[in-house]
């Protein structure tokens, strides 16, 4: 059965750590890093990469537009 797999790329230096994306993710992919970026923000990252379905929810609620989403139909 074909399965949709997704991935996000966070522009770490532009992320302001607002966490709005965290609650928007239906599969609880996103966590906030323990580290901080150059501005001192804990940035968003894929805490559970396997769970991402590429739905783009996180990207469209991100006020700063720092999330890019990729999606691929996996046949394996």
């Amino acid at each position: 059965m074909a399965k949709i797999k997704g991935a996000i790329v966070v522009d770490v230096e532009r992320c302001k750590g607002c966490e709005v994306c965290v609650g928007a993710c239906p599969t609880n992919v996103i966590g906030m890093a323990d580290n901080v970026n150059g501005k001192g923000y804990h940035f968003a990252y894929m805490a559970d990469a396997d769970a991402c379905i590429g739905c783009t929810n996180c990207a469209i609620v991100c006020p700063d537009g720092v999330i890019t989403v990729y999606k691929k139909k996996m046949t394996a």
């Binding site: 990207a59 700063d64 691929k72």
Partner: peptide, 27 residues
């Protein structure tokens, strides 16, 4: 394998400049 140009599902439009927004986090 997933993060490839042909798999792009969402990217901020180029009609937004790359200037960091002056707004507070979450605004």
């Amino acid at each position: 394998e997933i993060i490839q140009p042909e798999n792009l599902a969402y990217k901020k439009t180029e009609l937004m400049t790359d200037t960091v927004l002056s707004y507070c986090p979450g605004c």
